[in-house]
Amino acid sequence: MRSDRNASAPLGLKVAAGLGLAFLHLPILLIFLYAFTTEEKSYQFPPPGYTLQWFSVAWNRPDVWEAMGLSVRVASISTAVALVLGTLCAAAVSRTKFFGRETISLLVILPIALPGIITGIALRSAFSFVEMPFSFWTIVLGHATFCVVVIYNNAVARFRRISGSLIEASMDLGADSFQTFRYIILPNIGTALLAGGMLAFALSFDEVIVTTFTAGQQSTLPIWMLEELVRPRQRPVTNVVAMIVVLVTFLPILGAYYLTRDGDQVAGGGK
């Protein structure tokens, strides 16, 4: 006799899983509530009243805009660099077998496997060793390094699914390598790269640990947030900025999921 495959889960499991998911989501929802509170001096719950005024206050804050601008620029450039490096690495690793292939995978993953503070302090001492002053580019150097892995993971998963005979067929029909890349490989890996790029952007946009070591006096949005967390001065503005950050980071994640959902491996499986 066949047992019922659609048996529903035991109640205890349902409750435990539901509570687990609630534990993950309720704190983030609370951020949305606090963005509207009228309370300025404390984190009082329930909020004594609700207002929209902090949105306009935050909108008129030049320091928030500056930090946001810097974060967007850093994330864009880092993502672009990581796209090139990660795709090259993925193409090399997936197309051919060669000595040291495993080592390269390890090298790509290392910047994210070791604690961020180690990457940060290592970069900082290297910058001071070569007497490189802190600038926009020192932040990018750090961010691009750990963004490579996200692109690499997505691209490798997709390269595995492209059959090598497609490329050979293209070359046999007279296309050169560049035409093959443009018309055969790129359309096949495009969505994976876009998804990886979105996740890399989200990762860089949110990064704070490495950035504190490579930014000097500059302030990205996470660094601005960190200062508010350590020494709260503008609680209502921080509440609003926190809510905006949640919304901004949800978009690339949903986008990346949408782009890779029919794949055998979905983007972002490992951060």
Binding site: L21, L24, H25, P27, I28, L30, I31, Y34, S42, Y43, Q44, F45, P46, L199, A202, D206, V208, P222, M225, L226, L229, T238, A242, V245, V246, T249, F250, I253, L254, Y257, V266, G268, K271
Partner: peptide, 29 residues
């Protein structure tokens, strides 16, 4: 379930800490 895990995993590290600062505060929820 997939998005329910991915969204908190990828959402901002500092915002998550900030949320808990709101929750754990003496006058908090």
């Amino acid at each position: 379930f997939y998005l329910g895990v991915m969204l908190p995993l990828w959402s901002s590290y500092l915002v998550k800490i900030y949320a808990w600062k709101l929750i754990l505060a003496k006058e908090g929820i």
